[in-house]
Write a protein that binds this DNA or RNA. Structure first.
Lengths: 349, 349
DNA sequence: ATGAAAGCGCTAACAG
DNA sequence: CTGTTAGCGCTTTCAT
């Protein structure tokens, strides 16, 4: 049933040579071992004719190196992660590595077992966008000394290099913009709580308020997931409050979609009835009913840097000092923020 | 540097047993080999304590089975493919398989080398959404007898099972809808030519015309890629023609985004100035400036079926008869089609 | 009820 | 310049 692939052995015997010679030639060590031009060409020709391809399982077993890196991501269908996945795969491929992919579905248990699977498959390194709620399993992986880098979500107290956006600054900028446009009752729809991007963004939200000496209404900080459903539900709820916020700071692209759905269901218009700014720019952001003002991240760069960082670690065979890299975000102004009358509290007070 | 993982050997010697016994117990063959309860428990306890994990490289080498499947996709950042990737990964994981991922960037050469890489890594099977322009490399892979299934794009004359949407019927429905709304000058912005989804969709476009005895203006069938840029450029061009089409049938979600960009740049409105229907429904489709009428595919089902089909093949160890599976599409009517005065040619003639 | 040994396909140390 | 051999970690046949 299975076609018999040629092996070093079969080629060697066919040629009346030893496996080592064939192996040497194939690994470009002909000159180092002073192998004669004739045998070299003989071997090269034979391997080409037979379309010989080395068994990477055997190679990996022997070399303890698989040129494969494991990548675990919480939701590949989220366009934010999809675009990062693209750049991770591409950078890795360029550097000679393949990607073993796992979608953890925002579930720590799946993440844990998938990581174990990858370890068993002897990947050379790990890029993880962790769910972010649990660290214990990551800690045990750190102990194995396998190179790894965290992407997007990180743990400040964990000794692992990471690359992420400057979520704090991005959120600060976003909420500042809202405030500068006269908004003082601003809701914040969070993503998964206790994950670093969420924490940093919420902190930015708070600090923007503090800087402008604005009261922080805790009941306006709502939500608990990066998904659309969360955006929908929380917005529905927000619009039922006695005091309805004049603006929403949405912490992810998916949340925004849900929020938009709720807003339009309630017969309201952005930005006339309610303003909005959203984290994550997407190709469609500008084409929404109201073109969305967003905080754009450098998705492709995040993936690229993380991959290079990892492969550096793998190939230099040393742990790099586990620093975090924060990439700047940038605000793309479109039409979802309304400039409203600014009640100057200080002037009144 | 590297922490010494326990191996069968190290465990066996620590326990004063042989590797074979340990292996047997770990593979659940204790009863078959009448291994005493005590040794069994001894071994189980030791492996748990030491957190033993079998080296899958060694296992794969020996067993000729890796529980890994290769998945190559032309553009993971395209939300259509991202959502399929999600369901492929999930179904595979549930059935005990990991995914080796490669993004071919719509480039046959990358596809070819990536497939080779996967073969070298001894994946148990292949799911391929091929670029679709070249078959020769796929043909040689077929000859190796490795289980494979094509996803989305297929080759009718190639002996490989595939799963895809009923693109022909979907396009037929789409263009019929346009025609029923009075449109007779309908542009078709194609994706990558000579790929099956594109061909089938264009054929649907044509046949809808034929059925309604409408003239097919070849100059209205334009474009050559599934990307946004193509949609933008071709729409720009279409809007410069002497006779401007009253409607556009866009063959992909990305093309539509580009078309929308061009249309809005020209100061036109959908559907007042021009109507539109697009293949691929996306979460954002309903929130666009003009909520888009789309042809929705069953993304997650496509991925699931393809994966199960493949794993069936792998585990049953026989080639299934290479049939194609076409999943029905469905039209989601929103606001992007304007009902226009219907010029009844027959009545005039 | 358990062990010894071969071998999957490869690389590298050692030997000429 | 080339070959022999050991061994990566595992499963499985053959012994006992």
């Amino acid at each position: 049933m299975k076609s018999n692939n040629p092996t070093l052995k079969s080629i060697a015997s066919k040629l009346g040579l030893s496996v080592s010679t064939v192996s040497r030639v194939l690994n470009g060590k002909s000159s180092r071992y002073r192998i004669s031009k004739e045998t070299e060409e003989l071997i090269l020709k034979a391997t080409k004719d037979l379309n010989y391809m080395p068994n990477q399982l055997a190679r990996g077993l022997r070399l303890k190196r698989t040129n494969t890196i494991g990548y675990v991501i919480p939701d590949i269908s989220n366009p934010f992660f999809a675009s990062i996945a693209k750049s991770v795969e591409k950078s890795a491929r360029k550097l000679g590595y393949s990607i073993l992919l796992c979608d953890s579905e925002e579930n720590t248990e799946i993440e844990r077992t998938s990581l174990q699977l990858m370890l068993n498959r002897k990947v050379d390194g790990l890029i993880i966008s962790p769910v972010g709620l649990e660290v214990s399993h990551l800690k045990t992986i750190v102990q194995t000394n396998i190179p790894m880098v965290l992407l997007d979500r990180y743990f400040p107290d964990l000794n692992i290099p990471f690359v992420t956006s400057d979520n704090y600054q991005g959120a600060l900028d976003a909420v500042n913009l809202l405030i500068e446009n006269g908004h003082t009752t601003i809701a914040c729809i969070q993503g998964l709580r206790n994950t670093s991007p969420n924490n940093d963004r919420v902190k930015g939200y708070r600090d923007a308020h503090i800087r402008h000496e604005l009261f922080i209404d805790e009941s306006l900080i709502v939500g608990d997931s990066f998904g659309e459903e969360n955006g929908y539900i929380e917005t529905k709820l927000l619009l039922r409050k006695k005091i309805i916020p004049t603006a929403i700071f949405s912490v992810s692209n998916l949340i925004s979609l849900g929020a938009i759905r709720a807003i339009s269901e309630e017969g309201l218009k952005i930005p006339n009835d309610i303003s909005m700014i959203s984290f994550d720019d997407q190709p469609y952001s500008r084409f929404l009913a109201t073109p969305m003002t967003t905080v754009a991240q450098q998705n492709s760069q995040i993936g690229q840097i993380a991959t290079k960082l990892l492969i550096d670690q793998i190939e230099s065979n040393r742990r790099i000092e586990p620093r975090g890299i924060f990439l700047p975000t940038r605000i793309i102004v479109r039409d979802s923020i309304k400039r409203i009358f600014k009640l100057d509290l200080k002037a009144l007070g």
